[in-house]
Design a protein around this nucleic acid. Structure first.
Lengths: 394, 394
DNA sequence: CGAGGTTCCTTCGCGATCGAACAAAGTTGA
DNA sequence: TCAACTTTGTTCGATCGCGAAGGAACCTCG
């Protein structure tokens, strides 16, 4: 599967050099003047950096563009033979693995069964093997430059370790980055899956967005906040937790966290599975639920719609408080129109008009690839941040 | 009333020059080496800026400090005769007005009755008159350098105008900054009262804080978020709204916003007044409630405690989502221990342990002056940001 | 067709900050 | 008492970004 590069904005205060690469790779800017306008940076600065990037072999000058009433621009483009990165998004039972070129283009995606409960070494080895296989077609022509992995639990980004995750037995404290870097021999980034999705969505959205809230509603429920263009991780890296917010209708179902009435006990995919089974419906995974609701089976659809309402209820408080430009809904449940519709309905009903006035509420624009796209973008940006190092390896 | 300057941190990415002034004025740093350590900035940079500031007459070098095992530091201090600013915090029926020296010291505070419903010109004129009176003792020796005003409604900070406020008849669209600047002849800053309080609390707190949530619980309920050291205003400037979050126990009381079950219909000072009157208790203002609860009258205390519980319920969702370092509780209700206790209790019970682990939950450390202190700090920082201009007026 | 306006890009000087090296002024310990 | 170490502060390039000025290329209109 191949998707075209989506327009993207660069992170607000990254070094100009890497912002330039990001904008050119995304196709947003095609000339020096474009870049200066888009970045709000002095033309002289752009010129200097672009010259550097061309010297370093990252950018290329291709012919002249159309005039807009004056001198014709000299078009810029990324040199396509730059290389590629691997991006992986691990879920509970599956991993999505992708090859992304340094131009930001998603070249290939594959979903493979990976049991995260099998422990870090087994799971990560599988990711590496599948990644290597997936990258084979690109291999000799284009070198591997970096690797990013999203994990469904809290990650200490500095150390690249997992921190007391809820449903990842054997992973606690495991040095994921170190382990991968030793074996892959390239820069490795590790982060929470929802954070990566939030980054992907925020910067993939075609309109300028400053603040966004991204929700991943699958078997579990997670969310990520981007404020002023930067990911908000919180004091202890635990920001974005909405799954343990209390919902009135949740009743007295005990949650894994030890409390009663958490959102995840009635609105998560796992909760819907449980509820359907209680009613004698034969389902065992969130994918089953999605399939049945997609076929408009009344019981599944009703529960999905209710889940959306409950999520919306919690999101009202969050959205009122944060006042974002956009809410992105990702994860398996968000592929269902009834789910999205009821979240929307709750938000419009429960939020202050000043807040919903220009609010965008949309399903993840990059679909199920949101996670790997965010991961890929992040590591591409990381790799391109230093064009000197880039040249060295070329 | 005079309070000592509290230790303060400077806003994360203000110009180094004004950060230096802020740290020195707060007493956090007393030497160049101190400043370099505290700001994480190269010693050469500090040296250059400090030299400038001394030349400009803002800072002063006073003798040598104690050695810490090496060369003795050359102590820095603000030149005390620099000038002062006026800070005002307008509530529904009262305004708190303060004189702050450019060293960050609160020199005088006064509370005066000002009916905000009397319209902008009447109210602001009263503020100016009282401010001038309050500043008289400082007048000829020390010039007025700036003015900051906090208003209990949404403010467009860029234009200094009020935007469709809920309980401020006649203020909609009024150019507060312009009006004041014309009459005072000094730089004027206008902002929302809770935002100013949040800034004051965040940077007054003696420990290093990155992210904080500040709640003002008085007749109404407002809150402010500071993320990564910067005030989060949201997409439409409406961030921090928690008052219209739905609370299960609120029942079907209609709110001014047109919905049912909003937090403010049961947890605000106004709501407690209403509830007490329904029970035949003779109260008419939030101050009455605070007095009665302070005297441990059972009915008032019970309602206050319940209000705290409801506020805590909403804050749980917010705190889980934002994962701040600190929650500051301000406003009249927060002076009551039962109120603070029940907010705390709710947060510890309802939030994820990873979130409450190092969480500070405390009543506003600057007490009822939180608003004017934040306002004063902000405008002092603004005035000192350009030491050249400062000198010009000296 | 050529003058004037528009758009694109570069040159040059300026200011802020960094980092490394160094100078100055203490303390400590044999 | 003197050498070694610590802490404090300065000097000196180098880098990054800005802004003004100007040159280059192109359009448009009389």
């Amino acid at each position: 599967m191949v998707v075209d590069p989506a327009p993207a904005q660069a992170a607000a205060d990254a070094p100009v050099t890497s912002q330039i690469v990001a904008l050119v790779s995304a196709g947003v800017a095609t000339s020096r003047a474009d870049l200066a306008r888009e970045l709000g940076v002095a033309p002289s600065t752009v010129s200097a950096r672009v010259t550097e990037l061309i010297d370093a072999g990252v950018l290329d000058e291709g012919g002249a563009g159309e005039s807009r009433g004056g001198r014709r621009p000299r078009l810029l483009r990324l040199r396509p033979e730059g290389g590629h990165v691997l991006a992986a998004d691990l879920g509970g039972t599956h991993a999505r693995i992708a090859v992304m070129s340094l131009t930001g283009r998603l070249e290939a995606v594959r979903e493979v069964p990976v049991e995260i409960a099998a422990g870090p070494e087994t799971a990560l080895a599988a990711v590496l093997a599948e990644g290597a296989d997936l990258a084979t077609p690109f291999a000799p022509a284009s070198a591997l430059r970096g690797l990013a992995v999203g994990l469904p639990g809290p990650v200490d980004v500095e150390t690249g370790r997992v921190e007391s995750p809820a449903r990842m037995p054997g992973w606690n404290g495991f040095p994921v980055r170190e382990w991968l870097a030793e074996r892959a021999g390239v820069p490795v980034l590790v982060d929470n899956d929802v954070n990566l999705m939030a980054l992907g969505e925020h910067f993939s959205y075609p309109r300028r967005v400053q603040h966004s809230v991204t929700v991943k509603a699958g078997s579990g429920i997670g969310s990520g906040l981007i404020a002023s263009g930067r990911l908000h991780r919180g004091a202890t890296g635990a920001a974005g937790d909405i799954t343990h917010s209390r919902v009135s209708a949740a009743g007295e179902i005990p949650c894994s966290c030890g409390k009663l009435g958490c959102l995840e006990t009635i609105a998560s995919g796992a909760a819907i599975v449980r509820q359907l089974r209680d009613r004698g419906v034969d389902v065992s995974t969130t994918a089953d639920v999605v399939r049945r609701a997609g076929d408009a089976e009344p019981e599944a659809t009703t529960l999905v719609r209710e889940a959306g309402r409950h999520l919306g209820e919690v999101l009202c408080t969050v959205v009122n408080f944060v006042n974002p430009d956009a809410v992105f809904l990702g994860g398996a449940l968000s592929t269902l129109e009834p789910f999205v519709a009821s979240v929307r309905s709750q938000l419009y009903e429960g939020c202050h008009p000043l807040v919903t006035k220009n609010l965008v509420i949309t399903r993840a624009t990059t679909g199920p690839e949101a996670g790997v796209i965010g991961a890929g973008r992040l590591v591409v940006q990381h790799v391109l941040a230093d064009p000197g190092a880039y040249l060295l390896r070329g």
